[in-house]
Structure formats: structure tokens, C-alpha cells
């Protein structure tokens, strides 16, 4: 067992212990704190696997963002504290049985899969890691569209969260609002709000996607030539059976394969 594995196990078991505690304690705020620790443990695991940028993002996004959000959520909905965060014992036993069976199955599958630890270049990969600029090129290059779609998703999330959690007027029923003559104007303004936000955002996204297309093609065109001229896909049809799609500028699958190939040192 290599030193990396030993350290992975050590950090992993700590992370797992924190996660289990987060799922087990009765006090929800304590649970959140344990959950935060578990996320930090994951961040350490990321770092150990050479993903230092991701480790940072993990701490920033999760520990800084998600956990704080959840604490807000807990504070906003504070009630029935005496009941505790977890359900009755028989439920917990059932849940434990189900999750243990699932775990056993997963472990069995993992242990029966051959060749997990004998991949070529594993050790060198671990030390080298993925540099930040490689990640940046990948995100804005081959995955540009996904990246932009993600930004749209975040926007939609934002709008959705606002609409869902918006406090209604005191007199308003919680269900669907009847449209009376007197509040027809207000309705229209409210109804207009989301398109007013969404439409420019969508337009901006489309524009961004359109601009990203050009570099994508550039990267695609450059990648095999600059970094790995020897392993051109045209010369290895066995590895790339779909080589006729290389010229399609928005073919994500081809782009993924291409970048994966191009990134090999």
C-alpha cells in the first residue's frame, strides 16, 4: 500500500466519520457543523488527488456557501426542536440496514473489479496533477457550452428560488391568485418581472455561447497540432472511430475526446 493510499484512507475515514456524525446527531446545528467538517475532509481528499483548485472551490462553495445557507435555513424554520433532527430508532435501523446492504453491494462490486490500481501512469499523474490553466482551457474550450448552460441554470435557480420563497401579501391566499380587476395591473407587473430579468440574461448567454464558439474551434484545431503532433487522430483511426466528426465545431463528444487526447503529456 503506497503512502498516498494510506493517507487517503486516513483522511477518508475522518471524512466518513464526520459525515456519519452529521447524519446521526440530534441537534441540527451540530449536524451542520459536522457536515462542514466532512466537506473539508473531502477538500483535503481533492487536494491529495492533485485537484487543488477544486479543493479550494470546495471550501469556498460548500463550507462558505452551502453550509451558511443551510444554517440560515435552520434558523428560519426553527421549530419542534425537542424532536431532534433524526427520526425514531426503528426508522434509523431500517435506514441503516438499507444503506449497509447498498454499501455491501458496492464494496463487492469494487473488490470484484480487476485492474483498478494498475492503470498506466497512475503515479506520475498523481504527482503532476492538472494545472489550473489546463482546467481553464477545458472549461472555456471544449466544455464552453456546458459552462454557459450552467450559468443559465444558476439564473433560473435564482429566479425560481425568489418566486418560491417570496413572501406573499398578507391578504393573499397561498394558492393560485384569483385575478380581480383591481390588482390586474400589479399582476401584470409581477408577471413581467421574470421575463424582464430572464430575457437579457438569456440574450447575454446566447451571445457568450456564440463568442465562445470561435475559441473552441481554435483550440480544437490547434490542440492536436501543438501539443501532440505525433498522435494525430487521422493517423490512429482505431482509437478514434468517429474521426469524421472532427470538423464539426459544436460536437461536444468529439471535443471531449479531442481534449482528453490533447492533454496527455
Amino acid at each position: 500500500m503506497s503512502s498516498l493510499e494510506i493517507s487517503l484512507y486516513a483522511v477518508g475515514s475522518l471524512t466518513l466519520a464526520c459525515g456519519l456524525l452529521a447524519m446521526g446527531v440530534r441537534n441540527l446545528v451540530h449536524a451542520l457543523l459536522w457536515f462542514g467538517l466532512s466537506l473539508m475532509g473531502t477538500a483535503v481528499l481533492f487536494a491529495q488527488l492533485g485537484a487543488s483548485f477544486l479543493a479550494g472551490m470546495q471550501i469556498l462553495l460548500y463550507v462558505g456557501g452551502v453550509v451558511m445557507l443551510l444554517i440560515f435555513g435552520v434558523m428560519l424554520t426553527r421549530e419542534h426542536e425537542h424532536l431532534g433532527a433524526v427520526r425514531e430508532v426503528n426508522h434509523r435501523i431500517r435506514a441503516a440496514v438499507v444503506s449497509l446492504v447498498l454499501f455491501a453491494a458496492l464494496v463487492m462490486a469494487i473488490l470484484h473489479t480487476p485492474g483498478l490500481d494498475q492503470a498506466p501512469g497512475l503515479a506520475s499523474q498523481a504527482t503532476a496533477g492538472v494545472t489550473l490553466d489546463q482546467l481553464a482551457v477545458a472549461l472555456l474550450g471544449p466544455y464552453g457550452i456546458a459552462f454557459e448552460v450552467l450559468s443559465l441554470l444558476l439564473l433560473a435557480t435564482m429566479v425560481g428560488a425568489i418566486v418560491l420563497a417570496r413572501k406573499r401579501d398578507p391578504g393573499e391566499p397561498t394558492g393560485r391568485k384569483p385575478i380581480g380587476r383591481q390588482n390586474l395591473g400589479k399582476q401584470r407587473i409581477e408577471g413581467l418581472a421574470s421575463p424582464i430579468i430572464a430575457l437579457p440574461a438569456a440574450a447575454a448567454s446566447v451571445a457568450a455561447i456564440a463568442t465562445v464558439q470561435a475559441p473552441t474551434v481554435a483550440v480544437q484545431a490547434q490542440a492536436p497540432q501543438t501539443t501532440e503532433p505525433a498522435v494525430s487522430e487521422h493517423e490512429s483511426p482505431a482509437e478514434q472511430p468517429t474521426d469524421d466528426t472532427t470538423d464539426a465545431p459544436v460536437d461536444v463528444a468529439a471535443a471531449v475526446a479531442l481534449s482528453a487526447q490533447g492533454d496527455q503529456p
Binding site: S13, L20, G73, A85, L102
Partner: peptide, 27 residues
Amino acid sequence: MTAILLISSALFCAGVYGLLSQRHAVG
């Protein structure tokens, strides 16, 4: 690699356990 798979699945199963046993929605 095995280590990561094992840790990951253990974490996942802990999540499953929590999903089934938590009473509070935030949980």
C-alpha cells in the same frame, strides 16, 4: 483507486442513511 472508491461509496451510503433517517427537511 480502490481507496477512493471505497471512501466515496461509504460516504454515499452515509448519505443514503441520512436521507432515510432525517426528520428535519434541512437534514
